[in-house]
Structures are given as structure tokens and as C-alpha cells.
Amino acid sequence: MTSLINKTSKTQTLVSACIYLVLVVTASGILIRQFDLNPAVNVMRQQDSPGLQSPETRAFEAIVPLEGHLLPITPAEQFGPDTLSDKINGKAELYLSAHFKSLKTQRFKGLNDSSWWIEIYIYDMATGENAFAVYSSQMRDDAQPIDVGQYAYRTPNALFWVHGPYYVEAIASAVSTDAVDAMEAAAQAFVKKIRVKASRVTLQTLFPPEGLEQDSIKMIPADVFGYDRFDKVLIADYQQGSHTATAFLSKRANSDEAAALADGFHAFLLNFGGIAQPPMAELPHARIVEIFDTFDIVFKRGRYLAGIHEAADLDHALALARKLDQRLTEAGDDK
């Protein structure tokens, strides 16, 4: 027999069957082979696949519990003081001056395929004070307070909150109630999951409430009023009639430091063309300076350094300073 295949021979069927078998085997082989991922895909997965959890992603999820709220779409990134400007560029200065420790960020989208995505920035600021400092110094105009963590507010496209030493921003890619709601849910989960020493900045309760402008209390971390030795100062805006003034308050390590800083700030004001005013009987230990048609008052009470900045009217300023001094006296040094 010389023919392997012949039109009439049965082998045609046999050979065909064999060929089909080969095709099936081939297909199965290829199918099995595709589970063995290409190294490039593996690398890519480690970089940015939410499906496969890299250590960083897990670390992030440890601090932002995501179950039921959001889906990660990029890997978590971490930045330290050296690299912070790689992420937020020029704004890094603000955080660095407030003793920034680390930043973790990651992008997410909603569970149901959504048109928006959000990015969450978790700034570890080491202490609640520092966190409050960066929080308060960039409070948005359209802030709408919400009850998350110690301090929080939302804007049409973002959510900002302080929880212990963390200052967290969640910013959506679009103006979307859905997105902000999802972020708020995530924020609540975050606050619930992360246990922190509740370190509400209690100092602010010392500001006299009369004439205090809503939400105007801010913590300025450093270089307060341009004076380089002046740091961690709470400020609050006051208004009475047409008069405006800013009260400030800082708790120092000890009484001596507070006194030295008060002297230093006084000298600083004079140095810039301020004119020293005679002390007033209502507040004999306070020093008053007139500068650029406004008045500054600075005094110390125990460990507290306090005063009034850029008051338009001296009487208003003095009255405010007295109230402040009184509250400080009541509080004593332990607050």
C-alpha cells in the first residue's frame, strides 16, 4: 500500500480525526500556557493592578478601609519629606513647615463603573496639632462642615478631615454628590478603623466667643506674621461693627519661653517701623505697637503667649485682649 491518503480510503477519516485531535491539543496547550504570565505583565501588575495586591496597596488599605465604597485604580504611592514635592510640588512647603512625616496617596473609582474618580491623600503629620495646622490654614471658602473625625468639611468635589495625626484630603475628578458621598462613607470607615489618641486642639476654646467669626480659627505652623521664631500659633478673626482684629494664642513649653517670644515679637514689630505705645492700665503687662495704621498687642500669661494682631481700633483690641487674658487666667497652665 503506497497511499497514505486516498480519496476512497478510510484513512481520510482517520487522518482528519487525528488532525482535529492535534488542533484540540494545540488549543488546550495555548490556553494552559496563558496562565503563565509574561514577565512584563507581572511587572505591570505589581505596579498598578488593583487586582493583585502589592505590599503598598495592602498598607494603604490598612488605613483606608475600602470595603463597599471604592475600588482602587492605581497602586498606593508613598512620599516622605524628601519626595513630597514630587507629588504636590510647591505646596510641599506648607506641609514641611508643619513637621510633615509622610504622605500616602491612591486613586479610586466608585463601585459601579463611575464617570468620576477620586484621589485620597493621607498626610501623617505626627501630631494632631500639626494636622490641624495644615487643615486650618487651607480651609476652603465653600466649606460645609460635616461630622467626621475631629474636624471635617466638604466642598462640591472634595472632602477634608483631621483624625488624630492624620490630615486627609479626598478630591474627586468631577463635581459629583455621589463621589462626595462615597468619600464621606470612606472617611467614616477610616475614622472608625484607625484608632488615634483623640487630640482635639482644645486651645481654641480659649478664644472669647463674642465677635468670633465662624470657622476662622486657624493653626499657623511656622513663620507666624512673618516672624521666623514664632510657630504653632492659633489665630482667630474677630469683628465688632466695622472693627476687625485677629487674636492669636500659643502655648509654649514654659513661662520663660513665652516671655522671650513675646519680647522677640515686640522687637520684631518695632524693627519694621512699628511705634511703641505706652502700656495701658487695663492690661499693664501687655505691650502695644502701632504699625501701618493698625495696632498689635502682645502679652504672656503663664505658658501662654497671646495677643491681638492688626486691630483697626485700639479700644476694640484692648477689650478683646483683656477677655482673652481673663480666659487664660481661668484656664491655668494645664489646658
Partner: peptide
């Protein structure tokens, strides 16, 4: 196409 979904590169022997 670079990716790990079943319709992406994965381990498909695209050069076979």
C-alpha cells in the same frame, strides 16, 4: 495589549 485580563497579553503565546 499589556494587561492581565483574559483578552490582554497575560501569558498568551502571541509569538507562537
Amino acid at each position: 495589549t499589556l494587561g492581565d485580563r483574559w483578552w490582554q497579553l497575560r501569558g498568551w503565546s502571541v509569538n507562537w
